[in-house]
Design a protein around this nucleic acid. Structure first.
Length: 257
DNA sequence: TTAATTTGACCAAG
DNA sequence: CTTGGTCAAATTAA
């Protein structure tokens, strides 16, 4: 807990710890909220506060990290902030699932001239991400008794949206944890999840339960904190461009890899 | 009737 | 040959 003013890493640790605390408890609140027929104003308020807190911590982390980088401008190599994964560059991420020739098959001619993005997250609620998906396949994954479901954007044909995602259950815990792999950003403007409290996105997806999302970087089950982009570029009251994979303002945590 | 999902086959990379 | 991603016919739901 020792966090001296001249210890940015300690600060990051502290902020990260609180961030994770909130993030880990948010699903409970969501569950509670959804069990109430008309969600009480208290839980709604709590949900909103948590969202705000997450966003604030997000920004704080960005600031701290930027300062840290300025202080020791060149010593970046050793990854000084273990918990905070700097937003991986598109290139490195592409290497994650695509570049590493992720044993793909009839791999989409991947990114013909376009930018490709791939990122992984772990969540107990893999279906409610604000987009409309159509399932096109399911495979039983060797060894694990679980299956992997394959989704593509509902508007793939209509708008040529190339976004896809794979949902794979990771364990039998309660609630079970799913690993969701996203490929390509949506180009269809089909995000229907602009409601403040994880709004109901019914449609074709299985019942949405919540929004809690933990983004993981490829392979590593390390929590990724918000994209530590240029802090000055982060609008305080609205940052939810539609080409973002999922809403940041709500529950943050997204990494375009 | 139309649209979405399921499911087994197909295909390519390792 | 095995694995994993995609296709497409069959099935189911709205």
């Amino acid at each position: 807990m020792a966090c001296r003013p001249d210890d940015p890493e300690g600060a990051v640790r502290e902020v990260t710890r609180v961030y994770e605390l909130i993030r880990n408890h948010q699903p409970l609140l969501l569950h509670h909220q959804r069990q109430q027929e008309p969600p009480s104003s208290t839980t709604q308020l709590a949900q909103r506060l948590l969202g705000e807190a997450l966003r604030a911590l997000n920004i704080a982390l960005s600031v701290i990290k930027q300062q840290g980088q300025q202080d020791r401008s060149s010593t970046v190599a050793a990854s000084p902030l273990p918990q905070v994964l700097s937003s991986s560059s598109p290139a490195s991420a592409a290497a994650g699932s695509n570049g590493a020739a992720r044993s793909g098959k009839r791999r989409k001619p991947a990114v013909e001239g376009g930018q490709n993005s791939s990122w992984v997250k772990s969540t107990p609620f893999p279906y409610d991400d604000g987009y409309e998906w159509r399932k096109y396949g399911e495979k039983r994954i060797n060894g694990t008794g679980f299956t992997k479901s394959y989704f593509r954007c509902t508007y793939k044909d209509d708008k040529g949206c190339l976004a896809t995602k794979y949902v794979q259950q990771k364990d039998n815990s309660d609630p079970p944890e799913f690993q969701v792999t996203y490929n390509n950003d949506h180009t269809c403007n089909c995000n229907i999840n602009n409601l403040p409290t994880g709004g109901a996105a019914d449609t074709n997806n299985p019942p949405p339960i919540g929004h809690h999302e933990t983004v993981l970087q490829q392979e590593e089950a390390t929590v990724v904190l918000p994209p530590l982009a240029d802090v000055s570029a982060i609008p305080l009251d609205d940052l939810m461009p539609c080409d973002q994979p999922f809403p940041i303002a709500d529950h943050c945590v997204t990494v375009v890899a």
